[in-house]
Design a binder for these strands. Structure first.
Length: 397
DNA sequence: ACTCCACAGGAATTGAGGGGTG
DNA sequence: CACCCCTCAATTCCTGTGGAGT
């Protein structure tokens, strides 16, 4: 018999609390960091410019939420007192990898028309013009700034706009949020000096903190007494073991709840969390693979083929040999060894392939050996579902 | 303790493809 | 139309690395 919407289950009371974009109204695990953010923004209330601030820490540590939270506070103050003309510009640099793109997209956000084809200087001029138009105190939040890499001039230009005479009678401050620990170290000294007036580190949550975050959420999201007492703890433990990300922990909890609800249980039990973890893990691998380019896929097929023959982990050169064979069978273009190295690194970043450094002294110093990082069957499954690759793989076996 | 090799990965360059101005 | 800007995958060239083997 098919399911009927009228027998929906009573597991959740408000599942939107478990959505990605749900913002908690309290962050007790981050009090210290929030206080430091407060101090960094405080000059605005005294007629000055908020300090340029560098916020860093791994994903799912409450960085973005914390910054939004504190800026909402400041905004509320501005409205209440009326003596602060505050504008907050929120922008995620996730898809940009140069200062040019960020500047161009910021102009696009402000005017609705993203400039293209102009040189960097012209785009900056457009940006200054827009900012001048806004006036008052402008706080620009640049989320995921690590994705712009070393081309970080914008992080110098924006905070210095007034000092360099591009804008007048107003303040522009930048809050940069980074997932990457090392990003700060890669910045040029002039950028570092400008951006990092204040630095706030969000250390990974430990299992206990994750658990209390989950328990607070669960109370709002689930009906009373439907959660087995071990559920939040187990979800927290899974997440803590991996990255310590609250986002991930909440995902496990939500999925576990869904599994219970969709299968007619009236309680969420630890087994649901285990199942949820597996499902989400698999989904991550799928996403990791699907987002890759053709050449990435071909490299992955090579590694997978080596794995199938039990020849992994294999050296880069061996992977390259296999790669050449794969491209021949698939009748596609092949690229140089140097480039395959880069693609293998990308696969490693995506979490599909694992590269480890080895040394073999006089027979050739440092090198990598490559193998699959994800489950073999899952990888093969997903590869088969990517049309252009499945043929090549099918003909191999 | 020194050497030495194959590899890693940075730098410079190219060419196609997105777009611009005057 | 001629000329210019930015981006991105890819190529070529080249330097730095570090421990097994002497």
């Amino acid at each position: 018999m098919s399911k009927s919407f009228s027998d929906h289950s009573d597991i959740f009371s408000d599942e939107t609390v478990l959505y990605e974009d749900w913002t908690p109204e309290e962050l007790p695990e981050r009090e210290e960091e929030l206080d430091r953010l407060h101090d960094a923004l405080a000059p605005a209330t005294r007629g000055g410019a908020p300090h340029n601030t560098f916020v860093y820490g791994k994903t799912g540590q409450g960085k973005t939420v914390g910054v939004t939270y504190k800026l909402d506070d400041l905004q509320a103050y501005a409205e209440e007192t009326g003596d602060l003309d505050l504008t907050v510009i929120d922008y995620s640099c996730a898809k940009d990898n140069t200062s040019y793109q960020v500047a161009s997209n910021l102009v696009g956000e402000l005017t609705g028309a993203k400039p293209r084809g102009y040189d960097l200087k012209t785009v900056f001029d457009m940006l200054y013009e827009e900012l001048q138009e806004i006036g008052g105190t402008v706080v620009i939040v640049l989320d995921e700034i690590d994705s712009i890499g070393s081309d970080a001039d914008i992080l110098y230009e924006l905070p210095r706009a007034r000092a360099n005479g591009h804008i007048e009678d107003m303040w522009v401050s930048v809050i940069g949020i980074s997932n990457d620990f090392d990003f700060r170290g890669d910045l040029s000294p002039k950028v570092k000096d400008t951006l990092c007036e204040e630095e706030i580190h969000f250390a990974p949550y430990d299992a206990d903190q994750l658990q209390s975050i989950l328990e607070r959420r669960a109370e709002k999201a689930f009906q009373a007494d439907v959660l087995h007492p071990d559920v939040p703890q187990l979800a927290a433990a899974f997440a803590a073991k991996d990255k310590g990300s609250a986002r991930q922990a909440i995902r496990y909890l939500y999925k576990a709840g869904e599994l219970a609800a969709n299968n007619g249980y009236d309680e969420v039990v630890p087994e649901h969390v285990r199942e949820a973890e597996e499902i989400i893990e698999r989904r991550n691998i799928e996403k990791g693979i699907r987002d890759l380019t053709v050449q990435d896929h071909l490299c992955l097929v090579a590694v997978t083929a080596l794995e199938a023959r039990d020849e992994a982990p294999a050296r880069t050169r061996e992977v390259y040999g296999e790669y050449k064979r794969v491209t021949e069978i698939a009748d596609s273009d092949s690229i140089a060894l140097r480039r395959v190295r880069d693609h293998l690194q990308e696969l490693d970043l995506a979490g599909v392939v694992d590269g480890q450094t080895r040394h073999s002294g006089v027979k050739g110093g440092q090198h990598y050996v490559w193998g699959l990082d994800a489950d073999y069957d899952t990888v093969v499954d997903v590869l088969r579902s990517v049309d252009r690759i499945s043929d090549a793989l099918a003909r191999r076996t």
